[in-house]
Structures are given as C-alpha cells and as structure tokens.
Design a protein around this nucleic acid. Sequence first.
DNA 1: GATTAATTGACAGTATACTGACAATATAGC
DNA 2: GCTATATTGTCAGTATACTGTCAATTAATC
Lengths: 169, 169
Amino acid sequence: MPSKPTPITMDAVYTAPGYLFRRMQQIAVALFMEECRAFDLTPVQYGSLIAIHTHPGIDATRLSAVIAFDRSTLGSVIERLESKKLIDRKPSPEDKRVKLLYLTRAGAAILRDIMPSVEKAQARMLQPLKPADRKVLLTLLTQLVDLNNEASRVPLRAEDALEHLGKVG
Amino acid sequence: MPSKPTPITMDAVYTAPGYLFRRMQQIAVALFMEECRAFDLTPVQYGSLIAIHTHPGIDATRLSAVIAFDRSTLGSVIERLESKKLIDRKPSPEDKRVKLLYLTRAGAAILRDIMPSVEKAQARMLQPLKPADRKVLLTLLTQLVDLNNEASRVPLRAEDALEHLGKVG
DNA sequence: GATTAATTGACAGTATACTGACAATATAGC
DNA sequence: GCTATATTGTCAGTATACTGTCAATTAATC
C-alpha cells in the first residue's frame, strides 16, 4: 500500500534524524572550541594529532582512512598544523610521492595538555542526559556509525591503514 | 580524587561523542545527497524551503532562528535558492532593512516532489538499527539537542520567530 | 621491460559553518 | 525629538567537507 504523503510542516525538519545529527555536531564543535580555546586547535586538528601520535610516520592518505576525515580537506589541515609547528612533514625515502607525518615536541606537548579540556567538552555534551541514557545513546550511536561506515565518502579503515606502516615489503 | 590522565590512543577519538556525531552528520548528508540527487538541493536548502513554505514572508534573521542555521551562512543559501528561482525576495514595506522570503511556484513544486526522497534518506540512515533501537536513539537525540539548545551559536527559537509574523504591532 | 593500472598529493570549484566587523535603519530612554 | 542602543543584512576571513581533475610516481600485467 502506498504511504500517505508527508505533510509539509516544520516537524518534517525537526524530527528528521539528519537534522538532529547536524545540530548535535554543531553543538559538539561549539563545546569543543569553548573548552579548548586556550589551545587554538579545532576538533579535526586534534584528531589528526592523535592519529599522528599513535602512528608516527603515517602519510596523508592513510591518516585520512584512520580517522575517516576527507582526504582533500586534510591537505590544508596538515598545512595548518605544520605552520603552527606541531607536526613535521618529511619525504619518504621509499616513495617519492609520499610525505611522512611526525609530531614535533610542541605537538606532543599540546596533545598531552589539551586532553583534559577535550574530556570536559565530551562530557558536557552528554551531561544533560541521565548517566544510563548516556550509555545507551553512545552504544547505539557507535553501532550506527559502524553499520553505516560504507555510506560515507571516507569510510573508516583503521586496520587497513596500519598494515602498511613499519613494513619492509 | 584526581582522575587518571586519558591515554593517548585512537580510542580517545573513536569513542568521543563529538567524533561520532561528526561522522553521523557526514553519513546523513551523503545519504541525503544520494537520494535527492535528481533535485539538486542540499539538506540546508531543503530545510530553508520547508521553513519558508511554513512561514511565508519570513525574513532571513527569523528564518535562521526557526531552523537553527547560521545567520551569516544563510545569506548565500538564500542567494542560491533565489538564483535557482525557487524563492522570491521582496523588500518589506514596513522596515527598509528587511527582505521578505516567499516560495515561487517552482519552489513549492520541488518541495512537494522531493519529500519522498528525503523520507527515504532519513529512513536509510537508521535502517541498520532494530526498530525499537531507532526509536530509543531518536528520543534520546531529540532530548539531547533540546537540552543543549543554548550551547550552539544559533539556538532554535521556533516560538519567538513566529511572534513577529502577521502582526500589526 | 613496455604498457596499463592504481596511488599520492595537489588543486579548483562549490557549500556549509563560525567570528567579527560594518552601514543602514529602527527602537528605547530620556 | 535626540541620543544611545539594537537589529538587519552583508561582507571579509578562516575552517571543514565534497566533487572532480591532474601530474608524478609506483605497481601490476603481459
């Protein structure tokens, strides 16, 4: 049977999951920026630093896969981190196309120092919910992101990306 | 007691709610664009059309409040909708600063036609969850957005925005 | 080993966000 | 009624995304 046409009301917007995800993402960024103001880092830059810290010598393409950030955009993110002297970019001796990424001392330091503020921001955005509800939401959200992994332009490829690091052949 | 410092691992990223909201937002946009390709409308443009349809003669500032979209950005969104001839912008006779927004015939038509595709996209992003879980997630997400309303730069002001429409003073 | 494929980083073009500023215009307070 | 304040639209500057393209380089195939 054909379903009845959706009435065109604001509820078509307000109850759409896509709209709610957009608003929560904006709220999440706002809280991150507020808590981390002193460090002058964006959420994307923070995530990139974490990944480079965890995988020193990673290249931009694999970095993009490990954090599921857009590869085209990552170029300018890396540029900004480099100009802030938080990372170094060194040409790969094995592949002339590739530039390997490393944290500088300053990069490692800022990462260590920013963690508590990031934690605070992450806690604040779930604060309004009861603790049990926070857990439920996080569980479902994690599942949903994982199950929809292939739907995004840049699916998360944590495992794959690691395979090519620190190997000789 | 002081809590132990967070270890710097990828889990600090993968389990952060902010990261999960970012990824779901990107997945949501990707699914919207895929389902609605034929209409050449973005999620933001769609939301704007719905709001203008519901509140004919609304101005840009109130539009921003009714859908909680950034006011600076909305200028270019409106420009694009106007150049596609989906909306009309008319100067207000009462306030020389204000430009009032109306759907064109084409705008109303595209809105009517796109609804099923939007529905499909919204359904697809929750599809991977069990029906009961979808309901739980939506409920918690709606609560969370509402309770964090003031944390975003552009809090939703659905009621306020309406008060100034169609009144004489 | 020469041709074809795929990969890497880069770039141009479009769209959304947010910050902060500005001129024109309205409103409030006195 | 004049002045201080607020509102509206706009713009410049920065940051993130996505599409599509490109040259350089590497890998795969025959």
